[in-house]
Design a protein around this nucleic acid. Structure first.
Length: 298
DNA sequence: AAGAGACTCAACCGCGGTTGG
DNA sequence: GCCAACCGCGGTTGAGTCTCT
């Protein structure tokens, strides 16, 4: 089958007609038959234009009804997907920056495959983009790293992090006592001392107003984790509220130039997860907190 | 130059959650 | 409370492209 769109006729849909357990409305039956003849496969520029123009004029109101109104022989689902993953004006294309790769790796570590949640932290990136990026660049690299560990040149071996080592490091973050929670400073003290370890991308002005400080929240969170083992932590929640700053996203190109590719970021981050340019001491403290909370949750 | 295999990413599928009648 | 419709998500697929031999 070529890339050309196909006209789909789903036999399963016809078969399923005999399995209706109760009478269907005329509307749902008619929709079922309409779907049999919808266009599938790659979108052509004309379709893109129609959808874009329609949404620009009428905005999004109902994905199922829109295609018909826009003159498209597509399912609402297909239209939504095309819009969300490709046509949206705020979609960012091109390589992932170092900051973005960092964020993806760390959030995947904490949240698992919750791609939409991770995408919410990366403005302009879709969950599909991130999922594809992970499945192609990162996951394979990580596997390769594990298998490569035994054959690394001595110099690299010292800093190479195998999965096992990584897990050990994570567990040691639990067994070894945490750094003493930093003294809670008021806003003046923050600015004068600047000693509070800040979450890398997690630091937020949106911390719950009911809590006196991020540190209290983290500690409170730890206690809650011990009690119920859940991981709906404040840290996770505040993390989700805070998009990665545009400033942070820009810094990649400025610091390292365009020559740095996704591949290089991923390899570097996997090889040197604790390298100083990735996370400072304070950042590592917060990451350990989060990892600990997650592991307790598991 | 050509074929094979690897890689990328747009699109589809199916499931679960939410909403409204 | 039930059910159908809708929506969003994560997993998977496969056509097109790239790289290697």
């Amino acid at each position: 089958m070529t890339g050309a769109a196909v006209w789909c006729f789903k036999v399963e849909d016809l078969k399923s007609r005999n399995r209706f357990s109760r009478p269907e409305t005329m509307r749902s039956i008619s929709q079922k038959y309409q779907n049999l003849f919808l266009k599938r496969g790659t979108w052509d520029p004309d379709e893109d234009q129609k959808l874009r123009a329609y949404i620009k004029r009428h905005s999004i109101w109902n994905w199922n009804e829109m295609p018909r109104a826009a003159g498209l022989l597509r399912s609402g689902k297909s239209c939504r997907l095309r819009w969300m993953n490709y046509l949206r004006p705020d979609i960012k294309r091109g390589s992932f920056s170092k900051e973005e790769v960092q964020t993806i790796i760390k959030l995947q570590e904490m949240l698992g495959n919750r791609w939409s949640t991770i995408a919410a932290k990366l403005p302009g990136r879709t969950d599909n983009d991130i999922k594809n990026f992970w499945n192609t660049h990162v996951r394979n690299r990580f596997n390769n790293n594990i298998s490569n560990t035994t054959v690394q040149a001595p110099k690299l071996q010292e800093i190479q992090t195998s999965e096992e080592e990584f897990k050990q490091r994570k567990s040691s973050a639990i067994d070894v006592s945490l750094p003493t929670a930093p003294k809670i400073l008021n806003s003046e003290e923050y600015s004068s001392k600047g000693t509070l370890p800040m979450l890398p991308i997690l630091c937020s002005d949106n911390f719950s107003s009911s809590s006196s400080s991020p540190v209290n929240d983290i500690n409170e969170n730890m206690r809650m984790e011990e009690n119920d083992g859940s991981f709906e932590s404040f840290a996770e929640l505040s993390l989700l509220d805070q998009p990665l700053s545009m400033e942070a996203q820009k810094c990649n190109a400025e610091d390292y130039g365009e020559a740095y590719t996704d591949e290089m970021w991923v390899q570097e981050l996997l090889n040197y997860p604790n390298a100083s340019h990735n996370f400072d001491v304070g950042q590592e403290f917060w990451m350990n907190c989060l990892m600990q909370a997650q592991l307790h949750g598991n």
